[in-house]
Design a protein around this nucleic acid. Structure first.
Lengths: 104, 104
DNA sequence: GCAAACTACTTTGCAGCACAAACCATACTA
DNA sequence: TAGTATGGTTTGTGCTGCAAAGTAGTTTGC
């Protein structure tokens, strides 16, 4: 197996903005839009569109509600999202640890 | 500092194909085209164009020669390339270890 | 009470870029 | 000498990340 096959990284997660979002969600388990925007420094547009893609992929669920009269959007990793993130993490770790040299 | 600023990943390295190339070069220190193509599973076109970009960035040096009558291209990380890869590695490790929660 | 500013997002447009397919040059081989 | 293999490079294009602009509603100032 080649290095590339071995670690064909999930590009949905690999993209830096989404990687930041996913890794944040992975530690807090639930986060709202405003929190993520402060925490990550990403623009509103980017959070919105990246989260939409992660939702499409089944990696996050998006819950929209109100707190008082104001909208509030809460994001949470799905089980599949957490699994995918774990897999990604292992693959990256292996890559960075140094690929195995192929004999022959 | 936000998560995104903290770890604004070097996209030149972050791109999976180049990440694979860089991580291979990091362990072997010198590798030729044919070796890398077997090792990584990347197509010839991709190796060629990605290496060209890494050279432009000053991350690798490309040495072209012949072995007998056949062309042979050897790639090697520059000091800057190795440094950049080390920095990248640390940033990714931090991200995956879990971003720090910002208070307030 | 109404306009201006703010909050919380979403949508749009474009510029950049990764990928594979096509191409090129030379060397073997039947 | 036609055909195939080797060792690459170049080209075309489709995707997509990003910022800027847009939307919908709310609060504030006067």
């Amino acid at each position: 197996m080649t290095t590339a096959e071995q670690s064909s990284l999930d590009r949905l997660i690999h993209e830096p903005a989404r990687l930041v979002l996913m890794s944040n969600l992975a530690v807090v388990d639930e986060a709202d839009f405003v929190f993520l925007s402060h925490q990550t420094g990403l623009t509103a547009g980017n959070i919105s569109s990246h989260m939409a893609r992660l939702e499409e992929a089944g990696y996050v669920v998006i819950a929209k509600g109100f707190v008082g009269k104001r909208p509030r959007t809460v994001y949470r990793l799905t089980r599949a999202g957490r699994k995918a993130f774990d897999v990604y993490r292992v693959q990256v770790a292996e890559l960075l640890a140094g690929p195995e040299l192929r004999t022959q």
